[in-house]
């Protein structure tokens, strides 16, 4: 499995962490961020979230993020998986997993990647609410 992917289907956290952990015996710690769908946003119930991407550019931007993280932080490997489909409350959306010799850089890089992903990767979400569909424009 590629370390950076955009896919419709769900992913396995265990499989991704295993792939990361076994990529190097120098890894002493793995930090993960799992983004999932909430049933409430901006004061409204949300029944589903539909994702759209700029195919090609989005995965390239995620690959660039991984490369930059490997340069900026003292980490060994990183995986970034983002789903682009319609998800419902509680379902998985995005996974960042970072392996490093020590926990500090792993946590720092994991936080940096998800923050930067929201700013630099051309993916958009539209929430389905009781009042209709609504595009999300914020980066909370």
């Amino acid at each position: 499995m590629d370390a950076v992917r955009i896919q419709e289907k769900d992913f396995s956290i265990e499989a991704e962490v295993d792939a990361l952990r076994t990529s190097s015996k120098r890894i002493g710690g793995v930090a993960t961020f799992l983004g999932c769908a909430r049933d409430f946003s901006e004061g409204r119930d949300v029944s589903a979230i539909c994702f759209e991407q700029y195919a090609g550019m989005a995965v390239q931007a995620m690959q660039a993020l991984r490369s930059e993280a490997l340069e900026r932080f003292d980490i060994i490997d990183a995986r970034i998986i983002h789903r682009v489909t319609t998800v419902h409350a509680g379902e998985q959306i995005v996974l960042i997993a970072v392996g490093a010799e020590h926990r500090g850089p792993a946590f720092d890089a994991c936080r940096w990647i998800i923050d930067e992903l929201k700013l630099s990767v051309p993916i958009w979400k539209k929430e389905t609410t009781p009042n209709g569909d609504s595009w999300v424009t914020q980066h909370p």
């Binding site: 994702f51 929201k118 993916i123 958009w124």
Partner: peptide, 26 residues
């Protein structure tokens, strides 16, 4: 497929231009 800020850049034959709202993935 490269994000740009400079509106003065030249667009040529066969180029692909994307007009995108602020990103909201994650």
């Amino acid at each position: 497929q490269q994000q740009v800020d400079d509106l003065s850049i030249e667009i040529g034959d066969g180029d692909e231009v994307a007009i995108m709202p602020p990103f909201s993935g994650g």
